[in-house]
């Protein structure tokens, strides 16, 4: 391992360790009652207990399932709509204001309707995640398509690419770097939204678990869940960042 690589592991680990030490001393000082400020060892115990009962695992799977469904449906619908709006000025003129409106309306404001329409369960959360991903993806795709340099299409024309080939060989590869960036951003948002959605519109999942721990005054379990939510959010981005290593999109990140 190169010295730089060792340092990039060591320094963050040091920060995390320092944070735990501070946490330990604050809880040991007794500024807050243990029920409001659990000690690190209480959290470790709670983690073992939750892992063993399997409840934590089930909540993780449930939340990931909802995020995946909402995210994939939004991407599958949002990219084609964004491409269309990017290509056709009348479509853009007609749809951009309303897309901007929904983009700026917090998906959480839809919560009452989500419950009225879908009840408490998977569908309501998936619906909210869909809303939080769909509009930003449409806007990002549209902007990317509208910004493709005209020279690419002149080249396509002079080399005899047909309509469908222009889409698959020019438009889509040209927008990939920006679309991948939008996927990373919106996946992060979706992970934030699922927790909030499940707090109110769920009977399981990590968001519900957080609410449940609060109601049961189990702040030790609450901290376990917070750590798990944060770590999974980071992992989701680590997975999606792999898309930026595809050779045919590298150009978008190196200029």
């Amino acid at each position: 391992m190169k010295p730089g690589a060792a340092r990039s592991v060591l320094l963050p680990a040091l920060v995390a360790a320092a944070l735990i030490v501070v946490w330990y001393f604050v809880s040991a000082a007794g500024l807050f009652p243990p029920s409001a400020f659990p000690s690190p060892d209480a959290v470790v115990k709670a983690f073992a207990q939750e892992a063993k009962s399997g409840r934590l695992f089930n909540d993780i799977v449930t939340s990931l399932f909802r995020v995946s469904c909402g995210f994939l449906i939004a991407v599958a619908a949002g990219i084609p709509l964004g491409v269309w709006m990017g290509q056709k000025l009348p479509a853009r003129t007609a749809l951009l204001p309303i897309t901007n409106f929904f983009r700026n309306l917090s998906p959480l404001a839809w919560m009452p309707f989500a419950i009225l329409w879908f009840g408490v369960g998977d569908s309501a959360s998936i619906f909210l995640i869909f809303l939080s991903v769909f509009f930003p993806i449409v806007l990002a795709t549209m902007a990317a398509v509208a910004g493709i340099p005209a020279v690419h299409f002149q080249v396509a024309r002079s080399y005899g690419l047909r309509r469908f080939e222009k889409l698959t060989q020019v438009t889509l590869p040209a927008i990939m770097p920006q679309v991948i960036t939008a996927l990373r951003v919106t996946a992060g948002v979706a992970w934030l939204v699922v927790v909030a959605a499940e707090m109110i519109a769920g009977r399981d999942g990590l968001g519900f678990a957080v609410m449940d721990s609060r109601n049961g005054l189990r702040s030790d379990i609450l901290v376990v869940e917070m750590i798990v939510i944060g770590v999974i959010g980071v992992l989701i981005d680590r997975v999606l960042v792999q898309l930026t290593t595809i050779p045919s999109v590298r150009w978008g990140y190196e200029r």
């Binding site: 690419h152 080249v155 060989q169 990939m176 999109v249 978008g252």
Partner: peptide, 15 residues
């Protein structure tokens, strides 16, 4: 058949 060479960025950067 006509083909054009551009000032720069005429190549497809994804190819």
């Amino acid at each position: 058949q006509v083909r054009t060479v551009y000032q720069q960025d005429g190549l497809f950067p994804w190819r």
